[in-house]
């Protein structure tokens, strides 16, 4: 206090409000600063931050994993010919020529779009290729397989009930041994996959609300913890937007980091499962591999996480930061 420095005269021009052209720069600077500062704050309290991020990550990982599962099943099911409708197994005494004649007759039916004859020799060769039965087949001298007609119905007759009628009619043929509907199990699988996806969606919705609540509550606590700081900032002339900003950024960070955690969890699960799936697939002579989260999937998951974080913090901020008093 010994020094006598004369303060400068505070003319109005000295309390300079930023000139118009400087504003975007200041705006950008403030946002960048807040962006870094809020991340720093999360790092400064690693335990609670990590816990919040982990909860968000797990919440996002569950529906994401279900989605990946259903996508993989779909890809697997897509490998089969979905149009094959009814396999008509003929009596063993029906030879290739008779079978071809029957196929010709069936082509005339109005329910039938086309018919493929799979001769017993073709079937045996195919069977041999499919794998797993080579030893057994080598021991068999006589081909045990019947001729088969793959009957493809017209689209009008493709739905289950009408298909069943076609099946009945085919079975009434004297040459028929039995008929199997190939699409039925595919339709069932399809229905299951649809169900899984709806479940994933519902679960995603519920857990999304959970994420909103988690972020909202975390931000609420943060606001309460920093009550004094907020009050002082209001006293020295901080705008409502300035006070809100760090909380919104914190929420967005939580969401983004949660999304990254979810990506990590799902990817880790796929890596663990990949070996088992490959082994299983190789037993079926398949090259099938689990597909992970693609670029778009990852992007939308991170985006969704960030958006949820932002909305959650926005809710908390709207509720707990009323802005400068008095109203």
């Amino acid at each position: 206090m010994a020094r006598r420095v004369h303060p400068r005269p505070p003319r109005a021009s000295r309390i300079r409000t930023p000139r118009f052209l400087e504003r975007p720069g200041i705006w950008f600077n403030q946002h960048l600063q807040t962006l870094i500062e809020t991340l720093g704050r999360l790092r400064a309290n690693p335990v609670p931050s990590t816990m919040t991020v982990a909860v968000i990550g797990i919440s996002l990982a569950l529906p994401a994993a279900l989605y990946v599962l259903s996508e993989n099943l779909r890809a697997m099911a897509g490998g089969w010919d979905q149009t094959a409708a009814i396999s008509l197994f003929l009596d063993l005494e029906i030879d290739d020529r008779k079978a071809a004649d029957l196929a010709e007759r069936l082509r005339a039916w109005e329910e039938v779009a086309r018919v493929n004859l799979i001769t017993r020799d073709q079937a045996l060769a195919e069977f041999r290729d499919l794998g797993g039965f080579e030893d057994a087949l080598d021991k068999i001298t006589k081909n045990p397989l019947p001729n088969v007609l793959a009957v493809y119905p017209t689209p009008e007759h493709a739905e289950p009930e009408r298909l069943a009628a076609v099946q009945e009619r085919l079975l009434d043929l004297p040459e028929a041994d039995f008929a199997r509907m190939d699409t039925l199990w595919l339709q069932r699988l399809q229905a299951i996959l649809d169900l899984v996806q709806v479940v994933a969606l519902l679960l995603g919705g519920l857990l999304g609300i959970g994420v909103l609540l988690i972020v909202g509550n975390t931000i609420r606590l943060e606001i309460l913890n920093r009550r004094i700081e907020i009050e002082i900032m209001e006293l020295v002339g901080a705008t409502a937007a300035f006070i809100r900003r760090p909380f919104l950024y914190t929420g967005a960070w939580y969401g983004l980091l949660g999304g990254l955690t979810a990506w990590f969890l799902v990817t880790l699960a796929i890596l663990v499962l990949q070996g088992y799936v490959s082994r299983l697939a190789s037993l079926y002579h398949s090259e099938f591999r689990l597909a992970g989260l693609g670029f778009v999937d990852t992007g939308s998951m991170l985006g969704a996480g960030m958006l949820l974080g932002l909305i959650g913090s926005r809710l908390a901020v709207n509720h707990h930061l009323q802005g400068a008093k008095p109203a």
């Binding site: 002082i232 209001e234 006293l235 002339g237 901080a238 802005g323 400068a324």
Partner: peptide, 22 residues
């Protein structure tokens, strides 16, 4: 108006008995 309160507070420096420091 309420949104101009911050602008007003920047024109008025306030000193408190309990300092109000962070």
């Amino acid at each position: 108006p309420r949104r101009e309160i911050p602008q007003h507070r920047r024109q008025v420096g306030m000193i408190f008995q309990d300092h109000r420091l962070l």
